[in-house]
Structure formats: C-alpha cells, structure tokens
Write a protein that binds this DNA or RNA. Structure first.
Lengths: 204, 204
DNA sequence: CTATTTCAAGACCGATCGGTTCATATATTG
DNA sequence: CAATATATGAACCGATCGGTCTTGAAATAG
C-alpha cells in the first residue's frame, strides 16, 4: 500500500539524458582503456555529457568508475543466474556458461578483454573499494560454479574423485586466464577445444 | 679471430651506475604500479638516477618499460629452462614449476601480481611492441609445457586421454588465472590444493 | 696540470591531468 | 507571462604529466 504523496513536478528543464546509459558508455571506455588509461575527455565523448553534467551526476572519475564496475559485475552475475538456474541440468548450464566465455574471448571480443580481470590487475591491490568488489565477485562466481558442480556430482555426472569446490576454483582460474590469453591469441576454435578438453577431465 | 683494435680508454668520469640494476628496479616499479600508474618520479626514486641520466640511458619511459618487460620475460624463461630440463623427470619438473607459481601467488607476492599478466591486460591490445612480446612469451610457455607433457605421455605418466598440447593450454590458462585471483585472495594452502587437484586430473 | 666525460640537481617546457565555476540557452510548470 | 530547473560549453584552476636543458661537481686519462 503506497501513500499518495503529493509529488510536485519540478518546474524547469527536465533531465535530458539517461544516467544508466551514460554509465554503460563509461563502462565501455574503462573496459577498453583501463582506469588510468581513460581521461576525462574520453568519458565526455563517450557519454556525450558536458563536464559539468558528468560531475553533477557522478561526483568524480573514481565514483563513475565504481558505478561502471558495479554495472559490469551485475551483468556478469545475471548471466550466471541464468545459466546456473537450479531448474536446468547443471552440466548443460556449465557448458553454456563456458560457451559464453569462448564467445567473449574470441576475435575482437577477446582483444577487448575483461573489465574485471583488467581492474583486478590494475587496481585491486591498491584500491580497497575496488578490491572488495573484485573479491566479492570472485566469491560469488566460485559459489555458483561449486553449487552447480555439487548438483552434478549428486546426479553422478562428475568423473571419479572430482571434488566440486576445488573443481570450481580450477574452472574459475582457467576462465580468467582465458581472458588474459585472449588479449593476444583470440582464436575461437582453439579456445573452444581447450574448454572442451578441460571439461572432459571433470565430467563423466 | 679478433683484430686487436686499439681501444683508447675514454677520458672523463666513468659510468657510475649499473644499468642492469636500474632496469631491474624500474621493473619492480612497473610491476607494482603498471605502466600508466607509474610516473617519472617513481622511476627516478627507484633507480636512484637523475632525470638526465635516465633519459640518456633509456631514451624514454616506453623504451625503459620494454627493457623491464624483456627482463621479466627473460627471468621467466630461465625459470622454465631450469624446471623443464630434458634430463629431469617431466612430472617432477612440472610439479616444481607449479610450486613456484604457488609461491609467487601467495600473500604479498600474490598481491603484487604479475607484470606479464598486468601488461597483457593493460597494453597488449593497443601497443604492438608489447603485444608481440606477450604473445611470444605465451607461445614459448605453451611450447615448453607441451613438450614436458609429451615426454610424460611417452613415459606413460599421463592419465588416459590426455593430449599434451591441449593440456598445456589448459595449464597455462589456469596459471595465468591464478595470478589474477591471487590479487585479492592470495591464500597459499588454497592455491596449492587447487593446483594439486588440477594436476590430479592429468597425471596417472 | 688540462681536457674530457659522466653524473646529480633542478629549472624549465608545453601539454594534459582531474576538477570547479559561471554565463547562457533551453525547457518546463504555475 | 514569470519562475524554476537543467543542460551546455568554455574558461579557469593548480597539479602533474613526460621530456629537455643547463649548471656545476666529480672523476678519469693524457
């Protein structure tokens, strides 16, 4: 039950741009160029905002970066939420999730890299706010993959001796490494074959 | 046969600093702070050189960075040369090599990260000189690990169905991912256990 | 000794950094 | 209409960027 609060429409010019769209465009820039490699003019060009508007909306470069990073993380979590849906077969979900990685590490997508991995390397050691976010995402990813593997194990789908939690850590390290390698060698077939070979060691 | 060229000792003050030591100190700085995150004063402090001397010796920041990166790569290659010595048992060598990674991704070492991985993410996409070096190192690493695995396979030390070249790619992705994860979660025991669990899937 | 070379220290350069401020135009509501 | 709110764009800020240059001390060889 919502109280009918008498919200007066403010007079004056209404907000003329979409904040979330601006965050997304800023994310794209940080994604391609990194934090230190991104200058204010890059962000202004991408968001099509004036300096004043950008600072009014986001405070400063660092805050905008955190919002962009949060957005990237939210997208990644949503993807996992979808692929690891408990109603789906865990191995199917895992394969689909890995296929997404192959897609994202191929060709131009691969060269573009990964905002999380790049941020982890560039800032996580020095910037506590960033470090917490990266570590949090890592834990979340680990938990969901481990959960899927547990379900698979219960269904007898894993190879003998495979332990879900350590297998999850292996998979995550592998996937993050894939994003690093893809910066210079983004060949789709090789990536897919490597993923298949890895999976082959873990599923029955 | 060398012609006895009459090399006159130059008059004047002799070189008073060790260039290789300066490269190493510069490497440490880039390693900790990244390329864009490193400013000239950082390099001057670390190398204990004056601005003039540094520019006389190295040209500019980018050239110095390339020398530091080359040094890092040379060290890494030397480590592989040692561990994958053909006279040693390949599995022993591989285990020792992986143990070195665990060491380098634990605690403070882990937080420090890896100059190659950080550089791959920060510059490999935009800087051709850097990209070539990173890609070259990746190929070298892949080749040597694959070679060790081939020898292991010939000796019947690998699990059934393990193919040396794809297993090598898996291992490399895993190790590079380990360096990413270690930026925020550098716990030695977990790393070692994960490495062991991975190896367990590949060796008999 | 002198001539020569190398070094450190720091002034100096133009450009750019992230960030603030302000005048102006525009769009909306009462 | 007047009042209000928001956006732009440019001017502006001090600090720092990477890089050059000069000066003077130090150390060597002839």
């Amino acid at each position: 039950m919502r109280h009918e609060s008498p919200v007066h429409s403010p007079r004056g010019r209404p907000r003329g741009f979409d904040i979330e769209a601006a965050v997304e465009r800023a994310m794209d820039v940080f994604w391609s160029r990194g934090y230190h490699g991104t200058a204010l003019p890059d962000l202004l060009r991408a968001t099509k905002l004036s300096r004043g508007s950008l600072y009014a909306a986001f405070g400063d470069k660092h805050s905008l970066f955190l919002r962009a990073l949060d957005r990237y993380i939210a997208d990644a979590l949503a993807r996992m939420e979808f692929e690891f849906d408990p109603r789906k077969d865990p191995i199917d979900g895992l394969k689909a999730y890995l296929a997404g990685y192959v897609e994202r590490t191929s060709g131009g997508n691969g060269r573009r890299g990964c905002l999380l991995v790049a941020t982890a390397m560039e800032l996580a050691g020095q910037d506590a706010e960033v470090g917490r976010r990266v570590a949090g995402y890592f834990k979340a990813m680990e938990g969901r993959v481990a959960n899927a593997l547990s379900r698979a194990k219960a269904a007898g789908q894993l190879a003998d001796g495979v332990e879900p939690s350590s297998a999850a850590r292996i998979l995550i390290c592998f996937l993050w490494g894939l994003r690093v390698v893809a910066k210079t060698a983004p060949t789709r077939n090789t990536s897919q074959a490597t993923v298949d070979a890895l999976l082959d060691r873990f599923i029955r």
